[in-house]
Simulated scan of single mutants.
Amino acid sequence: MAHLVRIGTRRSKLAMTQSGMMQRAIGRALGVADADLAEAVPLVEIVTTGDRVQDRRLMEIGGKALFTKEIEEALADGRVDVAVHSMKDVPAEQPYGLCIAAVPPREDARDAFVSELFPSFADLPMGARLGTASLRRQAQALALRPDLAIEMLRGNVDTRLRRAADGDFDAILLAVSGLNRLGFESVIRERLSLNDFLPAPGQGALALQTRVEDIDAVWVAALNDPDTALAVAAERGAMTALEGSCRTAIGAHAEMVDDRLRLTTEMLAPDGSARWRRSADLSDPRGADAEDRARDMGMTLGAAIHAAAGDQRTLP
């Protein structure tokens, strides 16, 4: 059987798990038998710069685009037909000729508190060592607990969990969605509140990226979840206005509430000493132009926060 859709994916266990989920979903949409799936919808493994460099924060080596660049090059060159990304790793601007064609249903968007010693974030003792590579999580944790010692933690999920189990940290913060997809729900001691730890834009969602000319492929509509796509459009609008990168601590989360889309977004000083937050609702979120209006709402909120925060918003 000839290849129908080639999926570009990172090699990490989480990326392969997520891409495997999409492989099966695309196969179902195309009527491919399970026995033919590996040949008809193959996974093409691509090592990214973000995977190779594990000893520094992303902001020191070029930002989160380092998790997508090599896969996007393969997509643009025609070596793969769709890329599966964690939405929170996808930069605000799409490379020329590429687009986010589908956004599948979202997993839990919250952050997870993981610790061998303590049952919750609030139970951490004074000066506890908290592991994270996320500037957002660092700022949010310090906004609540300025006494904590934030220590850099990179690597795949297995590596991070092993370091926590080995006692390198008193606790670590991870995305609930990744732990759920990997079957590691049992390590979660607390699912942190959206109010205290507003997630990264797109957290818990996947992005299926294609070439622009493939946006109407037969499988695309089958995998797209309109409510998730709408929420992500609002969050990424805020990210665009806030210049969302690994040098800015920002959070954004949108969800349907009583037939309205409610978006909350925030920016924090990296040391947690200041926090700027705004919320807004989008009425009539089912209209034909709903995604454009959601994105505009996000950009408006983000611009207001950007103006309020001024020069306090980034690391030096």
Results as ranks from 00 to 15, higher is better:
residue 237 G to Y: 02
residue 246 C to G: 14
residue 239 M to Q: 15
residue 221 A to D: 13
residue 276 W to E: 03
residue 286 R to S: 11
residue 250 I to D: 05
residue 229 A to P: 08
residue 285 P to H: 02
residue 196 D to A: 10
residue 239 M to R: 15
residue 231 A to C: 14
residue 275 R to W: 15
residue 269 A to Y: 03
residue 307 A to I: 12
residue 282 L to R: 08
residue 234 A to W: 11
residue 216 D to N: 11
residue 299 M to S: 11
residue 204 G to H: 05
residue 227 D to I: 03
residue 195 N to R: 09
residue 310 G to E: 07
residue 224 N to Y: 05
residue 233 A to C: 10
residue 290 A to R: 15
residue 305 I to P: 08
residue 219 W to M: 00
residue 239 M to S: 15
residue 297 M to D: 07
residue 226 P to I: 07
residue 198 L to E: 04
residue 243 E to G: 15
residue 212 V to G: 00
residue 200 A to G: 05
residue 194 L to P: 05
residue 294 A to F: 10
residue 205 A to D: 11
residue 273 S to P: 01
residue 237 G to V: 03
residue 234 A to K: 08
residue 264 T to W: 02
residue 299 M to A: 12
residue 212 V to A: 12
residue 253 H to F: 13
residue 234 A to L: 08
residue 221 A to E: 09
residue 267 M to H: 10
residue 243 E to M: 11
residue 265 T to Q: 00
residue 295 R to G: 06
residue 305 I to V: 12
residue 262 R to V: 11
residue 240 T to P: 00
residue 303 A to G: 14
residue 256 M to L: 14
residue 220 V to C: 01
residue 257 V to N: 06
residue 279 S to V: 01
residue 257 V to D: 10
residue 200 A to Q: 14
residue 300 T to S: 13
residue 245 S to P: 11
residue 212 V to N: 05
residue 223 L to E: 00
residue 228 T to L: 00
residue 314 T to G: 00
residue 257 V to H: 10
residue 307 A to Q: 15
residue 229 A to F: 03
residue 280 A to I: 06
residue 287 G to F: 07
residue 273 S to N: 00
residue 254 A to K: 05
residue 238 A to T: 05
residue 239 M to D: 14
residue 194 L to T: 08
residue 314 T to C: 12
residue 284 D to H: 13
residue 219 W to F: 12
residue 222 A to Q: 13
residue 210 T to D: 05
residue 314 T to N: 05
residue 244 G to M: 03
residue 198 L to Y: 09
residue 311 D to P: 12
residue 266 E to N: 06
residue 274 A to V: 03
residue 273 S to W: 02
residue 235 E to G: 07
residue 204 G to K: 05
residue 237 G to T: 04
residue 209 Q to M: 10
residue 306 H to W: 14
residue 225 D to T: 09
residue 269 A to I: 04
residue 233 A to H: 13
residue 261 L to R: 06
residue 232 V to C: 10
residue 202 G to R: 08
residue 227 D to W: 10
residue 228 T to G: 02
residue 306 H to C: 06
residue 251 G to R: 12
residue 304 A to T: 07
residue 238 A to F: 02
residue 214 D to Y: 04
residue 245 S to T: 11
residue 293 R to K: 13
residue 240 T to F: 02
